[in-house]
Structures are given as C-alpha cells and as structure tokens.
C-alpha cells in the first residue's frame, strides 16, 4: 500500500522527458499511473525516480488524418471510448477502450501507458495489432514509428528503448471490427481478448486480421485463422473453421488460478468466432 521513496520530476515537454529519462538512473515515466502505481504500492516496482509526462501539452488529442486516427499518448481510455470520431471511424477501438477496467481506471489510464506497459491481459494490444496501428515514439535519437506487430516483444516488454516516450498512435480506421473480452472476475483484465477486423469485397472476405491478448505473454496476431477466412463469404461455418486455427498463434499459453493456458486457448477460439461474426456483420 505504501510505495518506496522516489524522486519526482514533472516534464514540460517530450524533449525534457527524454532528457530526464536519459540522465536519471532508474527513472520511469508515469502517465496515468494506473499500471505503475499499483505495482509500486505492492513494492513490485521500485523506481528511483518518476518523470511525470501527464501534463505535457499536445499529447491528449484525437485527430483524423486521412483514413487514420491519430491518438495522443496521453488520451485516456475514457476519452477514446467516448470519442465520436473513434466511435464512428473505428468502433472496435472505442469498444476496446470501454472494456478496460472500470470508469475510474478509464478516467486516468492512457493509451500510451497501456501500450508501453504491455500487460498480457491488457486490452489495447490486440486491437492495435488487428488494426495495424503504428506507434510513434521520441527518444534521444529523435522520432521513429514502430508497427504494432513489431512493438510487443514479450511479457511487459516492448520495442521501446529505455529513454523513449510514446507520443501518439496512428490507427487506420476500420468499420468492420469488433473486440470481445472474457474479463477476469477479480482483476477485470482480459483472460482472453480478441480483436477482429473483417473487410468485405462483395460477398467475400477480402481482408481479415485477428489480434489476441491474454493467452500468451504478449498479444499476438492469429494470421493463420485470418487467412483461413479470406477469399470466401463470412459464413458461420467458415468463421468457425477459421477460429479453429487460432491455436497456432500460441507458443506457450499462460495460466493462472482462474484459467489455465489450455482453457485460455480454448476461449480464444470461442471469442474469435464471436468477434469475427460481429466484425463481419459490421463490415457489411
């Protein structure tokens, strides 16, 4: 309940944040604090310094850029869920944000923090994978863009360098998307979360992508399942057959007291089937 001592710095700009991160030993960024503070309260995380980016101007906007939405790193989950731009352009993303934690958590937690933390049970990662999002980060060497598929490396590990700050996420709009989640009854994190995107061409599935979190240490793309659905109609049989392929995406499913890895893999198939059906429905 009582975090260790640490030094606190409030960064006024991204550049200052990068500078502080580079110069202070064992420093961590804090945005909403809703992954970091719980860990610090249990003394599972003991950073020597926090660099608060919560008030850096310009990181809290959602804007449209062609067929994409650009979401600032500090945009809260509640703002994503409530945004009419997101609801209209990318309903799955709004759905994902609304599925995170609870009202209080959504009022504080940020997109950037969630992605950087890369919790296996976090909801955004599956959606970002399925949507083909690109994460923009600024580090000592300047700005770079990382594809979501390259971003999640392992449990609580991303492609970010120690002194890099996520500034925004570019999310291609997709009408035909759905995110469905089996909530952990205690923690509310995803036991399994499936984000599915379906693009139709005439009656056939022209494009499909499926992101899954909760099952393995990092969120993954179920490419085999997605490929299996393409090239034909999104019929219940074809969806079921495609969903049956998700297992190939999981190397080592993780288990806990509530759900073993084996069961999570099973649930992933079930939720994939459901998410594909909703996505296809929305796409048509």
């Amino acid at each position: 309940m009582y975090p260790n001592q640490f030094d606190y710095h409030r960064a006024a700009s991204v550049a200052e944040a990068v500078e502080l991160l580079s110069s202070l030993p064992d420093a961590k960024l804090v945005a909403g604090g809703h992954s970091l503070i719980p860990a610090m309260k249990l003394r599972a995380a003991q950073p020597a310094a926090l660099v608060d980016i919560g008030r850096i101007p310009g990181l809290s906007d959602i804007s449209a850029d062609g067929d994409s939405l650009v979401i600032g790193a500090l945009v809260t989950h509640a703002s994503v869920a409530d945004s009419t731009a997101v609801q209209g352009g990318c309903p799955m993303l709004a759905e994902t944000a609304a599925a995170i934690g609870d009202i209080q958590v959504r009022n504080r937690g940020t997109v950037g923090g969630s992605l950087a933390h890369a919790d296996p049970g976090a909801d955004y990662p599956a959606a970002m994978l399925a949507l083909g999002a690109e994460i923009t980060a600024v580090g000592a060497g300047g700005e770079r863009t990382i594809a979501a598929s390259d971003f999640f490396v392992d449990i609580l590990t991303t492609a970010l360098a120690d002194n890099e700050v996520i500034t925004s996420v570019r999310v291609p709009c997709a009408a035909g998307g759905a995110y469905l989640k089996h909530r952990h009854p205690a923690s509310s994190y995803a036991v399994v979360g499936v984000a599915a995107c379906v693009g139709l061409d005439g009656g056939n599935v022209a494009s499909c992508s499926i992101g899954i979190n909760g099952v393995t240490g990092k969120a993954v793309l179920a490419d085999a399942a997605a490929a299996a659905l393409c090239g034909g109609p999104a019929s219940p049989d074809r969806i079921a057959a495609a969903a049956a392929c998700v297992g190939e995406a999981f190397d080592e499913p993780l288990g806990d007291l509530y759900a073993s890895g084996e069961f999570r893999a099973h649930l992933a198939g079930v939720y994939t089937k459901r998410a594909l059906a909703v996505a296809a429905e929305r796409a048509s």
Binding site: L42, H184, A186, S187, D256, L257, Y258
Partner: peptide
C-alpha cells in the same frame, strides 16, 4: 461461482489479493 482461497502445495496463498480473489461484483 467465483470465490476460492487457494493454496499451493507449499502453502503459498494463491488468491491473496483482490486481483485473484473474486468477490462478486
């Protein structure tokens, strides 16, 4: 439906926080 105070064989409480122990919502 949801609650269990579970121990591992070596006596570790596996549901020692509200992250694991599922009080009805």
């Amino acid at each position: 439906l949801t609650e269990i105070g579970a121990y591992s064989d070596d006596g570790q409480l596996l549901s020692g926080t509200l992250l694991e122990y599922a009080v009805p919502r």
